[in-house]
């Protein structure tokens, strides 16, 4: 007897089955997702930064929720699956807010990050200097690493 049959044969009281949908139902959801995708691509073309953030990340959240709710069937799943997933997202959020105060800033109470500041300036200069920041950046990186190691 295979595991599959064993588990799948359960149609006991606890095992719920949602109503099967016609394939066209899923195709409609897919179409909605595609429209959202197009909006998120065209959003930045309007050139407004805040609008870009909304079209890029707001729509990403909406798309993710649609996929989770309708493709992953979380809309008919037991509630505590949501809780599990939200707990994990909360852990990520805690991590972000605990760490951003150090990692996302150039300075804070009694400390500064001269190296990061210089890195950012160098990157900007490299970008302005030539379209291909890449090669320049590579050299710069290697060079910086070497001096960093040797000079001190």
């Amino acid at each position: 007897m295979s595991e599959g049959n064993a588990a799948h044969n359960h149609t006991g009281p606890g095992h719920h089955h949602h109503e099967p949908h016609a394939p066209s139902y899923y195709v409609k959801i897919w179409a909605v997702l595609l429209v959202l995708l197009i909006v998120s691509i065209t959003g930045p073309m309007l050139g407004n930064k805040i609008l870009t953030l909304i079209t890029a990340f707001g729509i990403a959240v909406v798309k993710a929720l649609i996929v989770a709710a309708f493709f992953m069937h979380l809309n008919v799943e037991k509630k505590y699956i949501w809780y599990v997933l939200l707990t994990m997202l909360a852990a990520v959020a805690i991590f972000y807010f605990g760490v951003a105060a150090d990692v996302q800033k150039y300075n804070g109470s009694n400390w500064t990050k001269p190296a990061s500041y210089k890195y950012d300036e160098d990157m900007k200069k490299a970008h302005e200097a030539g379209g291909h920041g890449g090669e320049h950046g590579a050299e710069h990186g290697a060079e910086a690493g070497a001096t960093h190691g040797a000079a001190q």
Partner: peptide, 11 residues
């Protein structure tokens, strides 16, 4: 975090 900190990363 780094993306938000470094302006140059948008370049």
């Amino acid at each position: 975090m780094m993306r938000l900190m470094y302006d140059s990363w948008s370049d």
